[in-house]
């Protein structure tokens, strides 16, 4: 067991780690297969695991933060209250006072998306099976699309429930000349239908891109460091790049959760006031 041999094997394992394609981190790996007839596969996968981890983190944090409800809040309670006030203000400002009923939904949406984004940034332990690698549920279009459809679905259902047929005035902007309506109304309908798409693609693409960029930079580092000589020295540059992108990703994790929540608020505002 001479040191040189150790180093070589370590480098090999590192190389194997980074050699995985930048897309491998998004792979869905079943952990507990659950298959029903007719090809309905509800397996518990790594994606399910990280959704549960997000849920568990939220439960732990809020249980801890509200364990004693103090008039003068401590650190955890204070930060939970900051999130509460932040979302409450956002809902008030965008939907108005009657948006109170949507507050728990927007709050849950923000917390869930933010934790899914954030926890996906945790580093994986090298050498563990792929099923235990860090996974970002929000990097999957189907997840973000489901959440977006949920938001827009609430808009449509609540709008129809509250305003009935008058909800369709959403597609007929007031103050537009009648002869322009045949042009405007299809545009409004298309813009409404594209909402869940833009909402979901924005979050999904941000998460995907961030993780891919980090992975690609990591590949550069590995390639350069094993090249020897000047190239090994240069490997510090993509490493700095990783650090920078990693820090940026924390901001993106928050920002995209915020954007998702506030856009949902703005769409919900339509459900309350369809005539705009």
């Amino acid at each position: 067991m001479n040191p040189a041999f150790d180093l070589t094997s370590w480098l090999f394992s590192l190389a194997r780690g980074v050699a995985a394609g930048p897309m491998e981190q998004f792979e869905i790996v079943p952990i507990v297969p659950l298959s029903f007839g007719d090809g309905l596969d509800l397996s518990f996968t790594n994606a399910s695991l990280w959704m549960l981890i997000s849920l568990g983190t939220a439960l732990l944090f809020f249980t801890w933060a509200t364990r004693r409800s103090e008039l003068v809040p401590g650190g955890a309670q204070g930060s939970a209250e900051v999130i509460y006030e932040f979302i409450a203000k956002m809902v008030r400002d965008t939907i108005g006072e009657d948006g109170r009923r949507f507050f728990p939904y927007i709050f849950t949406l923000f917390v869930f998306v933010f934790l899914a984004n954030l926890l996906g940034l945790l580093p994986s332990t090298p050498g563990t099976p792929a099923a235990l690698h860090t996974f970002t549920p929000t990097s999957h279009i189907i997840v973000t699309f489901t959440l977006a459809v949920l938001s827009v679905g609430i808009v449509v259902l609540y709008g129809l429930f509250k305003h009935g047929f008058a909800f369709l005035r959403l597609f007929v902007p007031s103050g537009v000349p009648v002869w322009l309506l045949p042009l405007i109304t299809p545009i409004e309908i298309i813009s409404f239908l594209s909402r869940p798409v833009s909402l979901s693609v924005r979050l999904f693409a941000n998460m995907l891109a961030g993780h891919v960029v980090i992975k690609v930079f990591a590949g550069f580092v590995a390639v350069l460091i094993v090249s020897g000589g000047v190239l090994s020295a240069i490997s510090i540059l993509p490493l700095i790049g990783i650090v920078g992108v990693f820090i940026l990703e924390f901001l993106v994790a928050f920002l995209q959760a915020f954007v998702f929540a506030i856009l949902s608020c703005i769409y919900l505002q339509d459900a309350l006031h369809p005539a705009h």
Partner: peptide, 29 residues
Amino acid sequence: STYASQIFWLLLTFGALYFVMSRIFLPRL
């Protein structure tokens, strides 16, 4: 082929979080 599972677990976890938030934590805060 992974969509059904992801939607199912997403709705499950999201629903659970919504339930706990709206019933317990948000009223407390």
